[in-house]
């Protein structure tokens, strides 16, 4: 008999366990989307600051002039990092990249010395780069300023598009999360409808009946959120290990805020859905439960 009792007690639990797992899964997905939104900004900065701008210098200039320009560029507000590449270094780089030596063929080094720099993300857009280009070409020793204009335009267009898509997906996901959690909990509560009705029949007030269900839902929501957060932290750890440019410390406050939001959403949706379901069954008459 005791054996039967234990088995039955086990049988009555899965509805709650499944609800907790279900809520944890959707919260995890929501957290992932949130993380993507936060990290999208990081990635945008990373990509923008990877575009190299080459200030190609005229031939036969004094190296002091080139170094003076390098120094000037390094102190300009838009510069992130700068390096001076001499004609010889350019030739070495060429040999390394393409494997042949133009010096042997042409009997002279056709490459130009250049000052290469990376601009800060805020300045990597068509207008700002045009201004930078105009400013630098004013210098006598500068032959031309070269950067991948098409890449800048594509990058900005794509970043805007991806941001809108991620935002739309997040809103959609949030809606799905709310509906899914609500459904999962209502399903779990459906199995309690006769229990709720019986409590009502023996003279318990609505508040007295709802209180333990509500408290349990807060607890379940919290467990779900903690499970989801554990999963998310695992993802962050794995991604950081494999992609060094993904740095959650840069957005620590936002990430903590995201995790707190997950707890809040988990508890609130769990509580509201449970309370709504209990109230629904309390309002129904006995024969409407069948």
């Amino acid at each position: 008999m005791t054996q039967t009792g234990r088995l039955s007690a086990k049988r009555s639990k899965p509805s709650y366990v499944m609800a907790v797992i279900g809520v944890a899964l959707v919260l995890f997905l929501l957290g992932l989307a949130g993380l993507l939104v936060i990290q999208a900004n990081n990635l945008k900065i990373h990509f923008k600051e990877s575009i190299e701008i080459q200030v190609i210098l005229r031939d036969n200039i004094r190296s002091q002039d080139a170094q003076a320009l390098e120094d000037t560029i390094s102190h300009l507000p838009f510069t992130k990092s700068v390096s001076y590449v001499t004609k010889d270094q350019a030739l070495q780089n060429y040999k390394k990249d393409f494997g042949d030596d133009p010096d042997t063929l042409l009997q002279y080094n056709p490459l130009y010395a250049s000052i290469n720099f990376f601009a800060k993300a805020d300045y990597v857009n068509a207008d700002s780069l045009k201004n930078i280009e105009n400013y630098l070409t004013q210098h006598d020793i500068v032959r031309e300023v070269y950067y991948r204009k098409d890449l800048v335009n594509t990058l900005n267009g794509n970043v805007k598009r991806v941001s809108v898509i991620i935002l739309a997906l997040s809103v959609l996901l949030a809606l799905v999360v709310i509906i899914l959690i609500d459904n999962t909990i209502r399903l779990a509560m459906f199995s309690n409808r006769f229990l709720i009705k019986t409590m009502q029949m023996v003279g318990a007030t609505r508040w007295f009946i709802a209180k333990p269900f509500d408290l349990r839902s807060i607890w379940n929501g919290l467990i779900s959120a903690l499970v989801a957060i554990a999963g998310l932290l695992g993802v962050i750890y794995a991604v950081e290990k494999n992609m060094p440019e993904f740095n959650s410390n840069q957005n620590l406050v936002m990430t903590i805020l995201l995790l707190l939001c997950m707890i809040l959403i988990g508890i609130c949706i769990s509580l509201l859905s449970t309370h709504r379901s209990v109230m629904k069954y309390l309002r129904l008459q006995l024969d409407e439960l069948y």
Partner: peptide, 24 residues
């Protein structure tokens, strides 16, 4: 009303055909 019905039921004893005990 729904607010006062619990107090009515506390003064009654209701016995059902299908027992309706709290199964948990």
């Amino acid at each position: 009303t729904w607010k006062t019905v619990p107090y009515l039921r506390r003064n009654l004893g209701v016995v059902f055909q299908d027992f309706q005990l709290l199964t948990d």
